[in-house]
Amino acid sequence: MKFTATVGVAGYGAYVPAFRIKGEEISRVWGDAAPVREKSVPGPDEDSLTMAYEAAREALEMAGVRPEEVGAVLVGSESPPYAVKPSATVVAEALGVTPRVVAADLEFACRAGTTAMILVAGLVASGAIRHGLAIGADNAQARPGDELDYTAGAGAAAFLLSGDRSRLLAVLEHAYSFVTDTPDFWRREGESFPRHAHRFTGEPAYFRHVVSAARGLMEEAGLKPSDFDYVVFHQPNVRFPLRAAQLLGFREEQVKLGLLAGEIGNTYAAASLIGLARVLDHAKPGQRILVVSFGSGAGSDAISLVTTEVVGSRKSSLERLLARRAYVDYALYAKQKALLRVA
């Protein structure tokens, strides 16, 4: 997919909760080696919706766009606080962009954030709306002791996409989606925790989709790995994105800046987008960035962006959020994740 009219990022925001649990603390309780050094833990009063709001407010403020000018709010998440009742309406109401707005939730495991971005970009590029918000947010749930318990994190990222060239920090060039019916991870209605198909989530799921989407984009756009300054992959752990980079021919230096899984774990729908926010905070004008998400079920979106001359003039609070770390032990973690039933 190529965007024929100008559309890009006028503002962005990232959110990571204040709390962390160390991988070794989870190992202490459950016995396996942890694939990440530490991961983010939401406060007891946080959910995917509150995190989505924090990221979106920052994106809106950075863009300098008035709330009533925002024409779309799409929240991509697999952990909405309600099974039925949109998070997008609460976020939109709190931001002050209601009522004349296209607002909806998207669910596609860890991929919904980038898909929200492609959909909002389409609305902007078509001229249907002037500005729109695409948000990826998750408070990932995992059965205590499951492999996922070692990595399931929490966070959000939001992108205010706009057609106003003068506002843009980065321009969207191309997008490429690759989707198949692959049951590698799922959660049935009424179940508290997701299930997964162990090693099946690797080769046929993550790697096939990530690599295919990235290759598809590069072929369609006539780009090669060396044309990119940075690449951000979906990051369920540290190993997968590094391996994907290797398979595609990217160097580790291109991946490192946007790879945060070792510090905050897997933030699901927010994971690749928080990585992109990190890269934009540090990018210089004229640099090209590739983002490749992955969502179980399964699918990947690849999006390429080029930064404008004003990138870096405004930065997100991400570094400050990453720097504030209050460590919890597994007991407090269980309390804050509502794994302990008290009422």
């Binding site: 406060g43 009063d45 946080e46 959910d47 407010r57």
Partner: peptide
């Protein structure tokens, strides 16, 4: 200011 969950009217 931050935006947070206060309470559930019931489970």
């Amino acid at each position: 200011a931050v935006f947070r969950r206060y309470r559930e009217q019931s489970p």
